[in-house]
Design a protein around this nucleic acid. Structure first.
Lengths: 149, 149
DNA sequence: AATATTTAAATTGTGCACAATTTAATTTTA
DNA sequence: TAAAATTAAATTGTGCACAATTTAAATATT
């Protein structure tokens, strides 16, 4: 690609990923609005539906987010009655995050979302699987490059 | 995929796109820091380096952003001397956005970025092209689905 | 021409993201 | 074991995103 072409917006992989991410979030919004949660809050719930209990640190490692983002986000989720936060007895530096009954119950309401989103994305099952593994690979690679510094 | 698997974080295309987008932004940061700009500001410059002059509306259509995001962003860019904003004489509803000399000159400094990012992403030229077109397709599709409502 | 509708930005308010710093607890080291 | 280093959250401050509303100008209707 010639040097002039390289700085065109349409040739930026970064832009298509960035715009895609935001459009995907918009696609989720009507569904998440019904549950009274935001997209990052939905991601926290996905983790907690698998693990029931975790720490801010572990959550951050899974979602690639730090305490600066998670602390206020989890406080909002606590206020809306979805999670409980309390200091660990064994290690008081750690804050345990646990689902409430309300948080547990939201799982049933959310169970329809993945199918709805898969349909809306317009990808076949094979395309979806392929795209997913492509992204995870790219994500892993870039994350390791970023962390090296 | 069984219903239980569908709600696992690792199976969410949305999450890998979301995390990827943020990791890519982090990868750009050291380069953009040198230029004194943020990632969304870089995207605005990419458009202006192609067009030299545009409107808030047109910029929003290209970047999928609205005036609520762009107005304060462009004001910051104006403060740092990269662009000028002024009401159009022909249609006073429109605000024209133009590059300053400083904004123009930043292009040379930025010209090394695409190659550096391509290298860091760890994708071959073919993989890059393929990933790019895959995303643009997904983006177009989701954007049209979102706009239909 | 006067009124209604549409359009383009700006404004307001909420919720992320994230760098940088602070606070407090735990672990390591001298 | 006392001091230093590390670790986990919280805090502070800046900059997006975006829904919803407001303001003002242009266009369409009656």
């Amino acid at each position: 690609m010639e040097l002039n072409e390289q700085l065109k917006l349409e040739n930026q992989l970064c832009f298509s990923v960035y715009a895609c991410s935001r459009e995907i979030t918009k696609m989720y919004r009507p569904y998440l609005d019904k549950l009274g949660i935001t997209y990052p809050q939905y991601l926290v719930l996905l983790v907690l539906w698998e693990q029931h209990e975790t720490t801010v640190k572990a959550l951050g490692a899974e979602l690639y987010l730090d305490s600066g983002t998670l602390t206020p986000l989890l406080k909002r989720m606590e206020e809306s009655g979805l999670v409980r936060r309390e200091r660990s007895k064994e290690d008081e530096r750690k804050v345990m995050v646990r689902l409430t009954t309300k948080g547990e119950e939201l799982r049933d309401e959310a169970s329809i979302i993945p199918d709805a989103m898969a349909t809306n994305s317009g990808l076949s099952k094979e395309e979806f699987t392929k795209a997913l593994s492509g992204f995870q690979q790219l994500l892993d690679h870039i994350h390791s490059v970023n962390d090296k510094k």
